[in-house]
Structures are given as structure tokens and as C-alpha cells.
Design a protein around this nucleic acid. Structure first.
Length: 646
RNA sequence: GCUACUGUGGCUCAAUGGUAGAGCAGCUCACUUGUAAUGAGCAGGUUGUCAGUUCGAUUCUGACCAGUAGCUCCA
């Protein structure tokens, strides 16, 4: 048979040769690195015989496919080790994931840190046993009998959900067999450098209605050095954790008696937010937005119109007796601004000439997140969003949507997060219509229009079902924190539904009253979350334009204290955030403190500088910059701040 | 909300079934200092809260509060 390789070359092999045989024929080194193969576009085991002419690609650990096979086998080894040590444990599922793998178990007792060590040791043993992974298939009925015989109830459930005529594959390694589509590496001896990371809870099949299983997370690399480097990288990432750095640098704190998800922004944190907020509001003004200032709470009647009362009540803080249908004094803190800004639109009749109408508001919102959700500044119960709503005619929608995207990208670019985000087109879940308002046709229509616009913008995006807002699809701009957990930073949503609910209309050119399309959008993401991600991005060392303290003025002795005060005042007058440190300490000590506080610039003043009427400048980044005129420094800093240099 | 872990002075951490220590920070004194930590001294905690077990708990148990990882949720 003819085997065609990615470079176009063709070689002839005997029918029945495996990818591994072929790799071996080319070079033993290639065979050693080969973890799985892609035959005619399908990923499969390297040990699978090939009988006909085929295109063949070998996958090593450097390929996503190879990495997944390697770690997927590691997941099986994990399950095998757990079965050996804890025979009563029931197996659920165990896939490879982005940075490793996991396996879900139903165990009587929680796994402890010591258990993980024992399991890891057993996995090493299994690798040492070099067990061959054998694939075989069974018809669905036989597979089910097998699963029932073994008492693996989760496997039974998985098989039951497969079609009647399905042929089901299994992988056997030594005494252990698992239901699995594969592919896998040829033997357990291939998989080394394994590290079990943690054990956490996870619902069976991802539903909170089901039992919570125990999930063991692990990772594995092709070399020990890569594993160690990865672990070091994780440790390094943790040092940037905003929840730790933000507290250390006194940007924010939390207090038990105030409550969960209700952080205190300390002066430095509040300052950074103020700088961001001014920047955002000014930019929005430049882009034709009109500022509103609307109430932080409203009667429930408002939320009944918007749909929040029916679709989002659990997420709201309600005042009064929500169960008393007659009561007129039931209020709720606002979880979002849209209904309020819609009322601004409805203030008077609108003409098609008025559109687009763009409203913005730096809006504080309240959401009753469940207790396990709160996380530092990333998930909180009260936060402030650069919220905006645009009412436009259908023919303006694309332009307006693109303008929103442009604004979001401008913001990301400026604050330095543009390379860290991913775009997600969040759609509804047609199997879970309870969660949404409107009918299938409206949703399909809205989503198709939105997809069209997104394709036209040329951005790279992924589509996700079940992530839409209850009233419409959205473009979410996603970002990961230092732990790799993804959250939405910015969102742009298309809404064909709420305008009608709120009777927002405009008189069109043809004399007909029509409902505008509404775009809900944020331009920078909620300030708390943005601050958190900026702390992590810069490890607390903000660019000068964002730094809560930009300049620290450090006299070397008392003799220059007065001069230090003069310089500080001059900097303050020039609009900079400057502080002096007049304590009677060694200059090295003061510099260290300023460095630790991540202050971008230090002005050092000794007798020499006082005499010559200059300053000695030190940069956080580049160290001693030598002597210069104060005006020179002011000009330099002015430029740096105005260009928002990073 | 669920699973697991954690909670000791402002911060980082130690110790113990017989009422707790260290470093940094703070305060005082001395040093007037040249680009990442001067020295000495002082003060600071009813060990998250409330119950329970015990002769005795900070240590063991439970509930609650808060923090962390993950799941679920996330307008």
C-alpha cells in the first residue's frame, strides 16, 4: 500500500503495517517520539494496523493530538492506580484537558493529600510495568453487560446514552479496562513525569442535580525538565495572584463583618479605578455617548417588564416580601442598568433621526452570587461597570456593533490586555428554553445576524451554546486569571426583545412606529475585575499612567527635606501623583520600600542635587538614570502618561 | 449552593490537650546616611465567632462567619 506523508513524499509498505512500524522504518528516534497518528485525517493509535493507501502523520508530544493521547493514557493510569489502592471506587470519566488530565471518581471517602502521593507512586509503578494498551470493540449490548458485571454504574449510564447500533471501544492495560474512544499511546511505559495536582469536587455530567464526585487533576510531560518548568511557572503565576498582591500592595481588602464579595477599595486601588473610569468616560464621550445617572434600585414592577423577575430573581437582592404579590413596596437592587436606561430612551417620543442613541453610565450593580462563587476582585457581589446601551435602527446595527467592538479593543489595547483575550460568540441553548425569553425563530434570526457581523469583522471567535444572556446572544471577550480560570471581561450583546417589552419605539421615515435594536455593551469590563487582571498582568507594577503613586521623592538627609517637599509640590501641581518620604532612614532603605511598592519613579535628593538645582532620577525598571532638571523629568513623565506608555 | 482544604498579633509563618513564639511592619532612642533592608529597646494576640467534649481547648467535635482550589452558576 502507498503511504503519503505530510511533505508529499510517498512510500510503499505491506498492508497491515502500523504507524509505529512505519515510524520505526524511518528512524527509531521517530518511533520513540510517536504517541499517536493521524491516518486520513482521523486521530488513532500508533499501533493500529493500516490496510489501504493512506495519508499518515505522526504525532509527538509537540502536537496537540500526541499530547492528548499521552495525557489521556495518564488518566487511565490514574484510574488504574486508584482501582488498585481503593477497589471500591467507581469510575466516571477521565479526559485529557488543556494542561493535563483529570479523572472523576465516586469514592466513599475523600482522597487526602497523602492518598494523592500514594496514587502517584502507584502510577509510576504502572509506568514501570510497561503494560501494553490493547484496544477492542464490543456491540452496545455486550458492552452494557460487561459494565453491569463490573458494577461500574457510571459507565453503564454512558453506554446507555449511546445509540443502539453503536460499536463501543475499550482499552485494556494489564488488569484494568476502561470504556474509551481513544486514542492512547502504545504502553504505559511511555508515560512518565506525572504529577497529581489536586483533588476537587465535580458533579457527575456537570449537573448540580447529580452526585458530586471527586476529581483528581494531574499533568504529565514528555520530559522531567518540562514538568519541572511547568510547576515553576505555576508557582510564578501564583505570585502574581491579584488576591495576594492586591492585598499586599494595599489596593483592596476584605472584612468579615461586611460580607462576602464586598471588597473595600483602599486609597491606592480606588485611585487606579478612578484613573480608568475617567479615561473610559472621556473616551465614551468622544465616541458620541450620552451619560445617564440612574437609580441603584427599583420596584419589582420594573424587573417584571424586563424579565429579570422571572429569569434572574435568585441573582438579585430584594427588599420587602417578594412572596407578597399584593405588596407595592417590594424593591430590588439593580443587577444591571438596561431597564433604567430604557426609561431614559422613553422620556419622549423618538424619531428615526434620533438614532442611534448611545447611553453610557458608570454603573454600580448588585448581584447575589452564590457563596462559593466569590473570588477576590474577580467575582464580587457589588461592582461597577462601564455600562452602555445603544438603540439603533436595523440598518445601523452592524456599524454600531463594530463601533462597540472597536471601543472594546481600543480599551484592551490601551490597558495592555489585548493579547490575553479570546472572543466567544455566546448563543442560547435551544434545549433549555426556560432560561430564555423569546421564541426559537427570534433567537435563530438574532444569532444568524450576529454571526454575519462577527464574520465580517474578521476576529477569531469560538461559538458556545448556552452562554447567551436571557434576552439575546452576545460576544464575550474572555480572559484567564493566573490560575487559568476564564471569565468574561467585556461583553457586547444584541437584543431584539427588550425594546418591545419596554415599548421603546421610534417613528420611522415611513411613518410607522418601530422597535429599535438594542445593543448592550461594556467598554472595559467591570472595574473591579479589570483591576484584578491588571494586577496579575503587571504583577502589581502598573505603567506610570495607571500607577496609584507615580513618583516617590526621597531626600537623603534632613538637609534636603525642604527641597524634597518643594519638588513633591511641583510634581503635584503638574498633575502627578507624588509623595515624599521624609523619614530619617538610609536612602537604600527608602529606595527598597519604593521598589517593593512598585512606584515607577524615584527622585533622589542629596546635597549635591540641591546645590546644583537638579534631581537624581531612578526608575523602577531601569535603576539609576542620573541627574536632570526637574522640568526635564516633568516633560518626560508627561509624555509617558499622555501616551499611556506601558 | 456543592466537594475539599484553610483561619494564630497589621503582614508572612512557627508551636502545643496544661491559656502561645519568630521575622517584617508599628512605636521610642541613637545614627544624617548616595541608589533594594543601620542598630538597640518597647509594645502588640481571650489563636475567626459561638457552642460542645474535657479537671483543663488555641489544639478534639459541631454550627456559623471568612478565605482558597474546583464543580455548578455567571445578565
Amino acid at each position: 500500500m502507498n503511504i503519503t506523508f505530510p511533505d508529499g513524499s510517498v512510500r510503499v509498505y505491506a498492508s497491515g503495517a502500523t504507524a509505529l512500524d512505519i515510524a520505526n522504518d524511518i528512524s527509531p528516534r521517530l518511533a520513540k517520539a510517536t504517541l499517536c497518528a493521524i491516518v486520513n485525517g482521523d486521530v488513532c493509535d500508533a499501533g493500529m494496523p493500516i490496510y489501504e493507501d493512506a495519508e499518515l502523520r505522526f504525532c509527538s508530544f509537540d502536537d496537540a493530538e500526541g499530547r492528548f493521547a499521552y495525557r489521556h493514557t495518564a488518566a487511565h493510569m490514574l484510574a488504574q492506580a486508584v482501582k488498585r489502592l481503593f477497589p471500591g471506587v467507581k469510575l466516571a470519566i477521565g479526559p485529557a484537558i488543556e494542561n493535563g488530565f483529570y479523572y472523576d471518581f465516586d469514592a466513599e471517602q475523600a482522597f487526602t493529600a497523602e492518598d494523592l502521593k500514594r496514587i502517584e507512586k502507584e502510577m509510576e509503578k504502572i509506568a514501570g510495568e510497561n503494560l501494553k494498551l490493547e484496544r477492542y470493540t464490543l456491540p452496545r449490548a455486550d458492552a452494557l453487560v460487561k459494565a453491569m458485571a463490573s458494577g461500574e454504574k457510571y459507565k453503564q449510564e454512558l453506554i446507555r446514552d449511546l445509540p443502539q447500533d453503536a460499536v463501543i471501544s475499550f482499552y485494556r492495560q494489564g488488569e484494568f479496562t476502561d470504556l474509551c474512544a481513544g486514542p492512547h499511546v502504545v504502553s504505559t511505559g511511555k508515560v512518565k513525569n506525572i504529577k497529581l495536582m489536586s483533588v476537587t469536587g465535580a458533579y457527575w455530567r456537570g449537573s448540580e442535580k447529580n452526585k458530586m464526585l471527586q476529581r483528581i487533576y494531574g499533568t504529565a510531560f514528555s520530559t522531567r525538565a518540562d514538568l519541572d518548568a511547568y510547576l515553576v511557572q505555576l508557582e510564578e503565576a501564583k505570585k502574581r495572584d491579584h488576591n495576594r498582591l492586591g492585598r499586599e500592595l494595599e489596593l483592596f481588602t476584605t472584612v468579615d463583618v461586611i460580607g462576602q464579595g464586598l471588597p473595600i477599595l483602599l486609597p491606592k486601588g480606588a485611585r487606579v479605578l478612578q484613573i480608568l473610569q475617567r479615561f473610559v468616560e472621556d473616551e465614551e464621550q468622544r465616541r458620541g455617548y450620552m451619560l445617564t445617572k440612574t437609580p441603584l434600585f427599583a420596584k419589582r414592577d420594573l424587573y417584571k417588564i424586563s424579565g429579570h423577575w422571572d429569569h434572574y430573581r435568585d441573582g438579585m437582592f430584594i427588599m420587602g416580601d417578594a412572596n407578597d404579590e399584593e405588596a407595592t413596596d417590594v424593591f430590588a437592587l439593580r443587577p444591571m442598568t438596561c431597564p433604567f436606561q430604557f426609561m431614559a430612551y422613553n422620556n419622549r417620543p423618538r424619531s428615526y433621526r434620533d438614532l442611534p442613541l448611545r447611553y453610557n453610565e458608570t454603573s454600580t450593580l448588585f448581584r447575589n452570587e452564590s457563596s462559593g462563587e466569590m473570588h477576590g476582585l474577580i467575582r464580587v457581589r457589588q461592582f461597577t461597570l462601564s455600562e452602555g446601551h445603544i438603540a439603533c435602527r436595523p440598518d445601523q446595527m452592524e456599524t454600531e456593533f463594530r463601533a462597540c467592538l472597536d471601543l472594546a479593543n481600543f480599551m484592551l489595547e490601551t490597558i495592555g490586555l489585548s493579547e490575553d483575550v479570546k472572543y466567544r460568540f455566546s448563543k442560547w441553548d435551544e434545549n433549555d428554553t426556560e432560561k430564555y425569553i423569546g421564541n426559537k425563530e427570534d433567537w435563530e434570526n438574532a444569532q444568524n445576524q450576529m454571526r454575519e457581523i462577527l464574520l465580517n469583522t474578521g476576529i477569531q471567535f469560538v461559538e458556545a451554546d448556552g452562554e447567551a444572556a436571557f434576552y439575546g446572544p452576545k460576544l464575550d471577550i474572555q480572559i484567564k486569571n493566573v490560575h487559568g480560570k476564564e471569565d468574561t471581561l467585556i461583553t457586547i450583546q444584541v437584543d431584539f426583545q427588550l425594546a418591545e417589552r419596554f415599548q421603546m419605539q421610534y417613528m420611522d421615515a415611513d411613518g410607522e412606529k418601530k422597535y429599535p435594536v438594542v445593543i448592550h455593551r461594556s467598554s472595559i469590563g467591570c472595574y473591579e475585575r479589570t483591576l484584578a487582571l491588571l494586577i496579575e498582568k503587571y504583577a502589581g507594577a502598573f505603567p506610570a499612567w495607571l500607577a496609584p503613586v507615580q513618583v516617590k521623592v526621597l531626600p537623603i538627609t534632613d538637609r534636603t527635606a525642604e527641597r524634597a517637599t518643594e519638588v513633591t509640590d511641583a510634581l503635584l501641581r503638574a498633575g502627578f501623583r507624588a509623595e515624599s518620604d521624609l523619614r530619617n532612614e538610609k536612602i537604600g532603605f527608602k529606595i527598597r520600600e519604593a521598589q517593593v511598592q512598585k512606584v515607577p519613579y524615584m527622585v533622589i535628593l542629596g546635597d549635591k542635587e540641591a546645590e546644583e538645582g537638579v534631581i537624581a532620577l531612578r526608575s523602577r525598571k531601569d535603576g539609576d538614570l542620573g541627574a536632570m532638571d526637574l522640568d526635564t523629568f516633568i516633560a518626560k513623565l508627561t509624555e509617558e502618561v499622555e501616551t499611556r506608555a506601558r
